[in-house]
Nucleic acid binder design. Structure first.
Lengths: 350, 350
DNA sequence: CTCCCGAAATGGAACGTTCCATTTAATTTA
DNA sequence: TAAATTAAATGGAACGTTCCATTTCGGGAG
């Protein structure tokens, strides 16, 4: 807008109409592009809007419409690159559909989570994609979704919730990477990280157990170690694992962050990861690639999960009769150095 | 809300009033907490709201109010952990002030940037914190901020824009880390990464040049290498730097991401980073700590910048007479291994 | 010249809230 | 007990849009 007369207070459709010498209805027509209005009139109106610095008031419009174009995206931990990538996937799809994402970070606080979801509904969000904070209960979520706000739960499965869901295949992925270690000849394998109250931990540990059982290898209960899913958690849990009289030869970690902490602990003890001990992760965050030695892990395609989540939510929004559905995304093994597969190949060949 | 009667269509304040046997004005009173209403009446109303699944309609309220509680946060690259941390700082402060952040990712697209800023204003955002996409022009921004939407530009300075701004001290930080390399005895120092059209690159390179000049060390123009600020960019730019007949002994990188790419390229050539060559970064992302060898870099406190940005914007929102201000945040040297300072200390002592 | 028709433009009610000006009820004071 | 005061509750206009039902306009057919 040109330097000139800045309007002090909000300029409305009516002022535009007056200035252009038409009725507010005509202005509304060009705004929505619905009726037919003479091209030169349209031009004149658009020009006036530009001059006066008109800003469309969606709140007022929604009042009659009931059809906003906003979707909420609630993330439990934005500082985790995994969720950032997930968010990017979500945004891409929403944007193409003409929707806009209203995104918020709860930092694992269920209180904050309730607040932002309430806010989003109050602003007329048509749907919400939720990556639930730890300790989220089904009851809380009942409040959050209503007849005109579709809910989709992502990444962390939430038992007892009727919403759609998008999660990676934690069980299969964990089984896959465990099998990889078994194939390399490991038998004393530890499972490390996450708290047993977390659903994701339960799923991943289940995959681990199944793979072990199928291979006929007994699990030492002493090698099931819980810790917070942070680097420091991984570090201290690994330290105690290494202090055991009969320590593991391989460690399946809850996720990459824990694995990196565990690698640090092993290095501190003078062990060369990938030679003296195998350590593997889950998620394939960008750090997994850059850490040294590079981490063998399970790739779950965060962006793809985000895209899928957005697409599924949009489907439920546009076709409100559509039933809640669930999607389980693929989890693929990425072999790098931390498992010692390369070393192993050398010795096996030699 | 209990399993019972799910209302098919939106329930309004009037229906609540009818069901509770009061007038809509009274319901409004309890909603806003403004007038005085008998405790038992309030209770009854609240209970009815709960039963019917009432959702407050902020759009309608803002229609009279003109006072929303939303602030827009526009990020140019969410996949960069630096911006994720910045966002966390912003959110923390906004939340405490009772505001909610409406956050969007532009992925460096100025088109998308205009779209989301327009959307935010249309939804009544009181202010916008913008981390501008590359190639953002001052004209575009003039459209984006109006008399009732305060604008704050963050991280990337934008010459010719009248808005408030929050940026780290790129010049001083870059000079600081260059001095560190000079103190270690380096003389052939390259500057690597970023495109010269980027304001941030200009500032950081200026700090580099000033430090070199002050030390009386000439800059070899052949050691000023541009590349996209990505890991791959850093990798290939570093590869060509190493192919030079008289290659540098130290490299100041545009940021951590570029530095990590550069480290990979050096390792690929068989060089031990921190011994055979020094490489340093800028930003102090979490990766800088975990990469091996750990990266010497400049910490700019992304979270702190975010907090500051939010506080400054809120100030302008609540006190609309307040003038636009600028804040330049500290940039501190973090010495780790990639610069070889530790090695250096050993040899110097021995 | 009148009639008719489609195109273009318009007036007004409605959306869900707030808030001012009132009314009604409850309580205190003289 | 009446008057004065305070607390509690209410009706209605207004906010900026949309959209239905109308009206006006501009020509072409009869």
């Amino acid at each position: 807008m040109p330097q000139g007369a800045q309007p002090r207070d909000k300029v409305t459709i009516i002022e535009i109409a007056d200035a252009a010498g038409v009725s507010k209805s005509t202005v509304s027509l060009v705004l929505t592009g619905r009726g037919s209005v003479k091209p030169e009139t349209r031009e004149r109106i658009l020009q006036v809007m530009d001059e006066l610095g008109y800003v469309y008031n969606r709140g007022a419009a929604n009042l009659r419409n009931t059809q906003s174009k906003i979707v909420g995206l609630v993330l439990n931990d934005l500082s985790n690159p995994f969720f950032a990538e997930f968010a990017i996937g979500v945004e891409t799809v929403l944007q193409m559909a003409g929707y806009v994402a209203f995104m918020a970070n709860t930092a694992e606080s269920v209180v904050r989570q309730s607040q932002v979801m309430k806010m989003m509904r109050e602003h007329g969000a048509r749907g919400i994609i939720l990556c639930p904070a730890l300790d989220t209960t089904a009851e809380e979520l009942a409040l959050a979704s209503g007849p005109d706000t579709a809910l989709l739960v992502a990444i962390r499965r939430l038992p007892g919730v009727a919403a759609s869901s998008v999660v990676p295949d934690n069980v299969a992925g964990s089984a896959r990477i465990t099998r990889h270690l078994l194939n390399l000849g490991h038998r004393r394998i530890a499972y490390l990280g996450g708290m047993s109250s977390m659903v994701v931990r339960q799923d991943r540990h289940q995959g681990f157990s199944e793979a072990m059982a199928k291979a006929g290898v007994a699990i030492d209960p002493g090698l099931n170690l819980e810790c917070m899913p942070t680097r420091d958690g991984g570090f201290s849990a690994m330290s105690s694992a290494l202090a055991l009289p009969n320590r593991p030869t391989a460690v399946v970690c809850y996720n990459d962050v824990v694995a990196i902490g565990a690698m640090l602990a092993a290095a501190r003890r003078g062990l060369v990861v990938g030679r003296d001990i195998a350590i593997v992760g889950f998620d394939d965050t960008s750090e997994a690639r850059h850490v040294s030695p590079a981490l063998t892990t399970i790739a779950v395609d965060a962006v793809g999960l985000g895209e899928r989540a957005a697409a599924m939510l949009l489907e439920r929004i546009t076709n409100r009769a559509a039933p809640a559905t669930s999607h389980v995304g693929p989890a693929e093994l990425v072999i790098r150095e931390s498992c010692g597969a390369y070393q192993h190949a050398l010795t096996a060949a030699g």
